[in-house]
Simulated scan of single mutants.
Amino acid sequence: METIRILLLEDDAPTRQRLHDALAADPGFSVEAVDSLAAARAAIARECPQVLLTDLELPDGHGADLTAEVHAAHPQVEILVISVLCDEANVVAAIAAGASGYIVKDALPEDIGNTVRQVLDGESPLSAGIARYLLRRLQPAATAGAEPVARPALDLTGRETDILWGIAKGMSYNEIADSLGISRKTLPNYIKSIYRKLEVNSRGEAVFEAVSRKLITL
């Protein structure tokens, strides 16, 4: 079985150790833990990981900046942000930058590893709470005398909308294909079409755009 390389960026030493231990408990994971953006950038330059877990508020910057950098330079890397409960604003900023989801800092050890496995299996660990926050923040502001900004209409098919809904609900690609009665081999073609129409490159971005455009409701 292939060993998955994980880079963990967390500046708080006890939290970093707890997350490291939870991930390292999976024999399929190889985990490197660092405590700063500078150290994370150096580690990525040496060997690009398959999964990046990054805290957001760091001594030398913000994890959303690293998320954007890695997503642009290495789009194949799955990125999860490490968050505290009720920190929707920072999580949404990271999703907009290219993250596929998030892990809550005080999650149970087994849930931490499971979340990484979920994103590697094509699922989107995004909660309904985050989706609701997106809806609230992305509603056009009612400004006196201002015309609402029109967004281009999208020609998503009914099937593509159903697939988007499945992605937003955190279903794996295989689960989506089975639930809709379509071939697992043809699903990637639908995904590529959805990404092209939404002008996105990741599941997190797709959910962000779908919710903001009211294409799906969670």
Rank of each mutant, 00 (worst) to 15 (best):
I176D: 15
G158R: 06
V34G: 01
V31Q: 02
V77C: 06
R184F: 06
A25E: 03
D111H: 00
S202C: 13
L120A: 11
S193H: 04
L56A: 00
R196Y: 03
R5I: 04
P109N: 06
V34L: 01
L120F: 14
T161K: 07
Q118H: 12
L126C: 06
T67P: 13
V119W: 03
P49H: 14
P188K: 10
R16W: 08
L138Q: 14
G113I: 03
A13R: 05
G28V: 05
A13F: 07
R136L: 08
G170A: 11
P14H: 13
C48P: 13
S183H: 02
I95M: 12
L52V: 11
G158P: 04
I216S: 08
E160S: 07
K197A: 01
P152K: 12
R136D: 07
L218T: 14
Q17Y: 07
A153G: 09
A38C: 02
Y190Q: 13
V91Q: 00
R151G: 09
L56D: 00
A40Q: 03
A206E: 12
G204I: 07
Q17R: 15
I103C: 03
A206L: 14
T15Y: 04
Q50T: 13
N114E: 05
E160M: 06
A128E: 15
T67I: 11
R184G: 10
L138M: 12
S193Y: 01
G129R: 15
L56S: 00
K192T: 02
A144V: 13
A142V: 13
W165M: 14
V34W: 01
P140W: 12
N201V: 09
S124F: 11
R184P: 09
S172R: 14
R41T: 04
I130P: 13
A43S: 10
P14R: 13
I103V: 10
K192Y: 02
S36T: 06
A177M: 07
I82W: 02
R184H: 14
P27N: 12
T143V: 09
L187N: 10
E205S: 12
V104N: 02
I79E: 01
A144Q: 10
V104W: 00
T54G: 04
T3P: 12
V92D: 00
P109D: 03
T217M: 12
L164I: 13
H74V: 04
A107F: 10
L9W: 01
A24D: 15
R196S: 05
V104A: 00
N189R: 09
E78Y: 06
V51Q: 14
Q76D: 12
I216P: 11
D12C: 10
A33H: 06
W165P: 15
A210I: 13
R203W: 03
A128D: 15
F29Q: 09
I194T: 04
D162H: 11
D111N: 01
E88K: 09
L23F: 08
A38N: 07
